[in-house]
Each structure stands twice: as structure tokens, then as C-alpha cells.
Nucleic acid binder design. Structure first.
Length: 857
RNA sequence: GGGCGCGUAGCUCAGCGGUAGAGCACUACGUUGACAUCGUAGUGGUCACAGGUUCGAUCCCUGUCGCGCCCA
């Protein structure tokens, strides 16, 4: 019945063959005709086109694939797409770096065309990697966030949010990256520790005297609009209500009380500039302070000539103010800081300075220290929806559960609405224009849904001429589009904003979102925001959070440390199944060190599985039975031996346990269970115990058949249990040993069914007795340093300290297999034994044995 | 400064109220007719530290220390 297997497994050949056949058979295709209730919909992370592939990609994507493969085999109609997040600033930076160009040095069209070129190559690299690691994605569902359809859906999202009042455009203080010259969102900010100085500067006081403030940013002096002092500060009483006069510019500013002015820090008196940090913004809002912006989009000082030129920005000495302004205008922030100190020192107005380390908010991508500028930007309203967002977050099942805390904390601590406009090029344009028609100047004109996607720079809103509109020049941030990944798959964002409403009904919300923990505050959060604002519901039922792949020493892999292991090198050395094995032993949420040891264990497991299967295939060479299920084959009286029924009972426990664990995303525990069964129960014990009957050395024909049927069931079931983890080898073995049984082991519904398994408490007892006695005999032989093959003249089994019920009958039922396995001519029961005995580990039995006389040389 | 997680055998990690577990590594023995990429057995831990709750704590609580991440 069985096919033939090569002596050695060649993973390269097997991987190529399997990939070819899976593609030909469409093994992983989603069935669009099946009802939604059968679906398992995965909202796969579209990897950022970053130019290089790392172990993190393999690690987290394979974790997802383990679940995807299980769910498919367990009968779900799995929707498992892959996307590429190719739009936005990350791609622009990649393009600028690899092609050594600047976006600003060429036309917008030219730059965008080059971006498209670069992402093609990068995406092909990803496809190749994902295929070789064996991801069971449905390639027909591939998407790009820059594709026309994605643009259309992303613009639909913007239109829907705008019409619902969740999207607004306003001039407001915005985090600004002076290197990339674009606005940023809160999530794109990282703090960098920078050595700096805390300067103490003397302000004048109206009516005479001086007040010393402390600041790390003296260059913003020109933008000063107030001083703040803690109400409990000893000097507060004498200062509050008076005006201070800024040095150099001689601008009178009020001295105000506020608890956020830390009396322990510096002099305890601080200047508020529009804008130095987020506290300045809060003070500016609450105290309705004037707006004095002295930085431009490149981070240079500008606009200082306005000091003293108007009533809301007065100076007591305009000549002095303009002299200082002339020295500072056009300098970048750092140079302006040095110059300001120089000017102040010359006037003897610096009262002191201390070296401090300060945390500077910087751009995650460019690394530049951020400024706060007042620019027109598009914002998604989130600050007024914190409670709703927390509630939606709690409706999603988080794996592991504590990851939800990260989401909750992020939502609770939001300080900005979500800024989604970027002053860049390669991205989805806003489908908006501003009217120049007399009477409605500045009115927002939006595109008709039917016309999407639009490029406002070249297209026009219906009913308007080019002269009558001002196009919105910005593009959306990458996250504004990738945050609708569930909807990019389902092809609609909300009623009235649909590309394919039937598909949307089938695919939204999704079942599961896999992603890494560091992007909970970005990707998970934004996706929840959008889903909530569009349709009032959570985008997924479950979210599974993966950790990171660390280097062997548990440090972060990084090029600078030189500890980067590339996916290709591992796949080349070990093959995909072994690399997957390493991933499959890691749990959700935890960072995992790449381990050569674990890879070796995986290698050994695949070798063992190959050899065990080959061995069983030998035992089945003459097998002409027609197995149905373990349960039925026992019922039919085919599988009769206690040891056979015992291993099937153990198998049934593994089938049930592994399924339950996979359902909870505990694939590592499931694998462990399967592996232990395979190695310890099946290989170490069952194969040895059944050998005699399998070879027909002992027992009758019925017992031989019983062993064959059992071997067949165990192997056929185990291969399916291993299939999610080791897709290539199990497929190769399955097709080799059970040809024609299923086009692919990975087919939908091919997971072993718990109801088909056989279990018997009495068979389990008999098997345990057998294994216990076998282990004791092995130990006895090992203690005497003889081969386990050494024959015994006889073995006597008596009740131990805690014998099982019906011990005698139990032992009688297994003497045949036991005698064959321990190599005893005679195994007999004794009600009690005189002299020295060997107990089994569980004290169920006590043994005596006699070695056979050595064979004559 | 706040939040979250982690600290268990040499290493990687499970366990989480009732006599410490696995794999790797190490040691000894064994060529048994699938596999020496094997088998059998063994060495190895005051479960970070200090208090508390409990009949009993690796497990619960509090604090301390160390590590990582996230956020101020």
C-alpha cells in the first residue's frame, strides 16, 4: 500500500516540490463562496518596505502561519492575505538612501516613479522569503498600500471621517521634523538623551530689579511670552502680577503662577515660549498667551523683525531688539543657541549654567530634534473619544492578555489628536481642494466617491475649474492607510464607501490580527480608531502579539553590533521546517533568542521523524488493510492488543490536547505535547513493544494485523499533528506513505478529529504497566552495563508496594509484547517473590530477572 | 519619575499554594534488525533577596535589588 521513501531527506528538493504542488493545487486559497461563519480571517501585517529582511520577519510571520495552518486543517475557511506597506516616508527614505538622491532635487512625478521602482524589487525579496519559510498565504489576496484600490479605500476613509466630523484641518502647534520637513504624529516621536546645559538668564523687572530664569533653550528667548513660577515658590509673592522684561529684546512679559513650574528645577522660574515643548502649548492655551513663532520649517530662526513692530509683540527698546534679531536671523537652532549665549554674556546677563542631560523629543525616522511649529494640518479626533477607544480595546481578546495594558496606557495618555497629513510626496493624497470662489473662499471641496482615487494636483472637484480651487498638496501618513488594512482586504470602509460590499460583509471584522508589541501604540491603536470611527466596532476578534527575535546573547540584533543572522543563511543551513521549529518553540509576547541549540533539536526531530516513518513504512510493506478510524478499527475487532490500544489512547489525548492549545494560540505547548508523544511514547516505547508482532516474530496473524493497523493510524495522525509546524517534511512523508489520501496534508479539514480517536482506561493501565516494567528491566540491564539486547532466561513480575487493581490479569495481557521487547524466554507472574527484587518506578510491581547463559563463542 | 514584563539546573525555558520539571550541555554505560543526527541511566537547583499571609509559598501580598521594553 505504501509508497517509497528515500534514505535521506533533502529539504531543498522537498521544499521546491511542495511549493510547486501547493501552488498548482491552490492549497491555501480562500473560498469566497463559503459562509462567513466558517471563516478565519487574518489581518496580516503588511511589512514596511525597508530594504532588508531580518529574523524578526521570519519569527513573527511564522508564528502566525502556525495558527493559520492549524485553523485551516481544523476546518476553517482561512483568509490569509499578504500586503506590502510601500507608501509613505519610510519608502522615501529608503529611496533617497539607496539611490543617493533627494526628493527635493527633482519633480514630484519623477520622484514618485523612482519610489515605485524601488518597492518592486523590495517586495519581490519579501515574496521569496515568505514563500521559502512556508507561509500558507493566499497570494491571490496580495495588496499594496500604494495601489489604486488602496488609495481609493484610504481616500474613502478620509472622506467618511470628514463627513462624520472626525477629520478636521486646522492651524495648530504641531510636532515638526525640520530634516524631513514634515509634521509628525505623537507615535513617531522618540526621546533621545542629549548632553546639554541649563542656563540661568537674567530678565529685567518693570519697576527695577531682575528675575533669573532657567532654560535649556535660550535661543527661543525671542519667542518668550510669559514667565511661570510655582505659587509656593518663596519668590512668588514678590513677582506675581508684575511684568518681566526679556533680555536682548526688551519685551515685557507677564509673570504668572502655575504648579507645572517645578520649584526644584533650575531657579524654579521658567520662561514660556511659543513653542518650546508641550507644556508651553498648554500654558499658551490656558492663559491665552500670544503666538510668537520664530522658527521656520528648516529649523532656522526667522520673523524676529516683528518684535516691537506691533502692539501684541511690543518692545521697550526696538533698536536693541532689532540688533539682536539681525545677529540671530537665519541661524539654525544650535548656532542660534550659542549666539544667544554669546550676546547675553557680552551684556553680563548669564547668571550661571549647569551641565544636564535632557530628553529631547526627536523624529523616529530622521533622528532630528523636533520643533513645534504652527502649520495647517489634518487631524483625526481621538482626544474626545478615549473612553470609547478603551471600551473597544477591551472587546478584543488580547494574547497574551497583559498586552492590552499597553494599549490602555497609550490611550489614557494621549495628548494630541492624530495628525495624519505629511508634507511629502510618495503617499495617498488627500481628496480635498480649497475653494477660491468669491463668497466661499477656503471652503473644503471634496471628491465624489465615484471619482476616487483622485490626485488633487491634477484632478478637479466636480463643477469647478482649475482657477477656482487650491489643491491640498499634502499626502497622508503611512499609518493613515495601513490602519485600514482590514478594510483594504474587505474592500469597503463604511456604508456608502464601498468597492465591494459583499466581500466586506464576508471579511469584516477580521478574526485575528497578529503583530509585534512595539507597534501597539501605532498600528493596533490606529486600526482600532479607524474601525471604530467608520463602523463603531472593533476591527478584529483576537489580537496576538509577538515578541522580537534577539541575538544568541539576548541582545538586540543590530548591524552595528555585527550580530545579525540573516534568514537566508539559516534557511540554507537548516531548511525551512527546522527554522519554523525554532519559531514554534517560542511563545506569543515573549522576545526569544535565536538559539543554535534549539535549531539542532529541530534538525534532530526532523531526522527522527523521517527515520521513524521509514521504519513504519517497512513494517507496512505487505499491509493490505483498509483502515478507517482508530475508534472503528477497535470496534471492528481489528485492533485487539492492549499495547496497541494503549498507544491509541495516548494518541487520543494528544489530538484533543493539541487542538485545544492551538485554539488558544499556544502552539508551542501543542508542539511540545505532540513531540513528547512522538519521541517518548511512540518511538521509545511503542515501536519497541510492537516490533515483535510487527515483524511477525511473535503472536498470531490477528496480532500482527493489530500492530500494523495501529502503526498506520499513529503515523498517519502524527504527520497531520506535525503538519502546521513542519509543513514540508510532513507533506513529503504523507504523500510518500499515503499516496492519494489527500491532495495535500494541509487541506482544509484534515486535522485529526477527536471523535475518531480511541481511548480505553483499561488499555491505558495495561500500557503503563508494560512501560513501567520495561523501564525497570532496562535500568537493571543498564546498571549491569550490558546491552539492552542481552537476553533473559526469565522475568518474574510480582505486585509491588502499590499494585494496580487486577495486576495479575494486566500483566498476563502484555506478556507476549513484554517478553519480545526485553528479550526474555519466559515472563511469568508471581504472587510474591523471595529475595532481592527490582521495583518499577511507580512501585506498582516488583521484578526478578535472570540473564540467559552467554552464547558460546 | 510612571507603567508593563522578566529574574527557576551551566544554557534556553515550562510550572505557579502541598515532596522542584523539560530540552540542550555534561558524565557513565550500551553498536538493539528506523535512527550513534541513536538508546539507557546519571550528575546538577536554599525557584534574585528580605519581610508578610497560610497548617504549608517557587507560586499570593509588600518592599528591595538586577535586566528588558514602553511612556513621561
Amino acid at each position: 500500500m505504501s509508497g517509497t521513501l528515500a534514505d535521506k531527506y533533502d529539504f531543498k528538493v522537498a521544499e521546491a516540490d511542495c511549493q510547486e504542488s501547493w501552488k498548482r493545487l491552490n492549497t491555501y486559497a480562500w473560498d469566497a463562496t463559503a459562509p462567513k461563519s466558517e471563516s478565519y480571517i487574518i489581518d496580516t501585517p503588511p511589512p514596511t518596505v525597508s530594504g532588508y529582511l531580518h529574523m524578526g520577519h521570519i519569527y513573527s510571520y511564522t508564528q502566525t502561519d502556525l495558527t493559520a495552518r492549524y485553523m485551516r486543517m481544523a476546518g476553517r475557511n482561512v483568509f490569509y492575505p499578504i500586503g506590502f506597506d510601500d507608501n509613505g516616508l519610510p519608502t522615501e527614505r529608503l529611496v533617497e538612501a539607496t539611490r543617493k538622491i533627494r526628493a527635493t532635487d527633482m519633480s514630484r512625478e519623477e520622484f514618485v516613479a523612482i519610489c515605485h521602482e524601488v518597492v518592486q524589487q523590495s517586495e519581490e525579496d519579501f515574496r521569496k522569503l515568505f514563500r521559502s519559510i512556508g507561509l500558507s498565504v493566499d497570494w491571490a489576496q496580495e495588496y499594496q498600500t500604494i495601489s489604486p484600490t488602496s488609495m481609493k479605500l484610504s481616500q474613502m476613509s478620509a472622506l467618511d471621517l470628514f463627513k462624520k466630523g472626525h477629520l478636521y484641518r486646522t492651524w495648530q502647534p504641531t510636532l515638526w521634523d525640520p530634516v524631513d520637513r514634515t509634521a509628525l504624529a505623537q507615535a513617531e516621536v522618540v526621546d533621545k538623551e542629549v548632553a546639554s546645559s541649563m542656563w540661568e538668564l537674567a530678565f529685567g523687572l518693570e519697576g527695577g530689579g531682575e528675575v533669573v530664569i532657567a532654560t535649556t533653550r535660550p535661543e527661543l528667548l525671542g519667542a518668550c511670552c510669559a514667565l511661570f513660577i510655582h505659587p509656593d515658590h518663596p519668590k512668588a509673592a514678590g513677582l506675581l502680577g508684575r511684568n518681566a522684561i526679556s533680555p536682548l529684546f526688551q519685551v515685557p512679559v507677564p509673570i504668572l503662577a502655575d504648579e507645572r513650574a517645578d520649584p526644584e528645577k533650575g531657579t524654579g522660574i521658567v520662561m514660556c515660549c511659543t513653542f518650546g515643548d508641550t507644556t508651553d502649548i498648554e500654558w499658551w492655551r490656558e492663559h491665552k498667551l500670544p503666538t510668537r513663532v520664530i522658527l521656520d520649517k528648516n529649523g532656522r530662526l526667522t520673523g524676529l523683525e516683528r518684535i516691537g513692530a506691533s502692539a501684541d509683540w511690543p518692545s521697550l527698546d526696538q533698536d536693541s531688539a532689532q540688533a539682536a534679531a539681525a545677529e540671530l536671523t537665519g541661524l539654525k537652532v544650535n548656532a542660534a543657541r550659542a549666539k544667544t549665549i554669546e550676546l547675553l554674556t557680552a551684556r553680563d546677563l548669564v547668571r550661571g549654567s549647569t551641565a544636564v542631560n535632557r530628553m529631547v523629543p526627536s523624529a523616529e525616522r530622521s533622528g532630528a530634534p523636533l520643533e513645534i511649529l504652527v502649520t495647517p494640518q489634518w487631524f483625526v479626533r481621538v482626544l474626545d473619544k478615549k473612553d470609547d477607544l478603551l471600551k473597544i480595546g477591551s472587546e478584543i481578546a488580547w494574547y497574551p492578555p497583559y498586552m492590552q495594558v499597553r494599549y490602555d496606557r497609550w490611550v489614557e495618555n494621549l495628548k494630541w489628536d492624530w495628525c495624519i497629513s505629511r508634507q511629502r510626496y510618495f503617499g495617498v493624497p488627500f481628496p480635498f481642494w480649497y475653494s477660491k470662489r468669491p463668497g466661499e473662499e477656503g471652503k473644503v471641496l471634496f471628491a465624489d466617491v465615484a471619482d476616487l482615487p483622485v490626485n488633487p494636483l491634477t484632478d478637479l472637484p466636480r463643477g469647478y475649474t482649475a482657477d477656482e480651487v487650491e489643491p491640498d498638496p499634502d499626502v497622508m501618513d503611512t499609518w493613515a492607510t495601513s490602519s485600514v488594512s482590514p478594510q483594504l482586504n474587505s474592500r469597503a470602509v463604511a456604508p456608502g464607501f464601498e468597492v465591494d460590499s459583499e466581500r466586506h460583509d464576508k471579511l469584516f471584522p477580521a478574526t485575528m490580527r497578529p503583530q509585534a508589541h512595539e507597534i501597539i501604540r501605532t498600528w493596533a491603536f490606529y486600526t482600532i480608531v479607524k474601525s471604530y470611527l467608520h463602523e463603531g466596532k472593533a476591527p478584529w476578534k483576537d489580537i496576538t502579539i509577538s515578541g522580537w527575535c534577539l541575538a544568541q546573547d539576548r541582545s538586540k540584533m543590530s548591524k552595528s553590533k555585527g550580530n545579525v543572522v540573516t534568514p537566508d543563511s539559516l534557511l540554507e543551513r537548516y531548511g525551512a521546517d527546522v527554522v519554523r521549529y525554532w519559531t514554534a518553540t517560542s511563545r506569543l509576547g515573549l522576545d526569544t533568542a535565536l538559539s543554535e541549540d534549539v535549531l539542532k533539536v529541530g534538525k534532530r526531530l526532523t531526522t527522527k521523524l523521517w527515520n521513524a516513518t521509514r521504519f513504519v513504512s517497512m513494517q507496512l510493506k505487505d499491509f493490505d488493510g483498509a483502515p478507517s478510524t482508530p475508534k472503528e478499527d477497535v470496534a471492528k475487532g481489528i485492533i485487539v492488543c492492549p499495547v496497541d490500544q494503549w498507544i491509541l489512547t495516548k494518541l487520543s489525548e494528544v489530538v484533543r490536547g493539541a487542538g485545544e492549545l492551538f485554539e488558544k494560540y499556544e502552539y508551542a505547548d501543542a508542539l511540545h505535547l505532540i513531540e513528547r508523544f512522538f519521541w517518548n511514547d511512540f518511538c521509545d516505547n511503542y515501536l519497541e513493544l510492537s516490533k515483535g508482532r510487527a515483524y511477525s516474530d511473535v503472536g498470531n496473524e490477528a496480532e500482527h494485523r493489530s500492530a500494523q493497523y495501529t502503526l498506520w493510524h499513529c503515523l498517519e495522525t502524527m504527520l497531520r499533528l506535525f503538519a502546521p509546524t513542519l509543513p514540508y517534511m510532513t507533506e513529503t512523508l504523507y504523500q510518500g506513505l499515503f499516496p492519494g489520501r489527500s491532495p495535500s496534508i494541509h487541506n482544509r479539514g484534515n486535522w485529526p478529529k477527536a471523535d475518531d480517536q480511541f481511548a480505553s482506561a483499561s488499555a491505558e493501565l495495561a500500557g503503563e504497566a508494560c512501560v513501567g516494567i520495561l523501564a525497570a528491566v532496562r535500568k537493571a540491564k543498564s546498571d549491569r552495563q550490558v546491552s539492552l539486547k542481552t537476553p533473559l532466561a526469565w522475568l518474574r513480575v510480582a505486585p509491588g508496594a502499590t499494585p494496580p487493581d487486577g495486576a495479575r490479569e494486566l500483566v498476563a495481557s502484555i506478556t507476549g509484547d513484554l517478553a519480545a521487547t526485553v528479550g526474555a524466554s519466559l515472563v511469568e507472574w508471581a504472587d510474591s517473590l523471595e529475595g532481592e527484587t527490582v521495583p518499577t518506578q511507580d512501585s506498582a510491581f516488583a521484578l526478578q530477572l535472570e540473564f540467559a547463559a552467554p552464547a558460546q563463542e
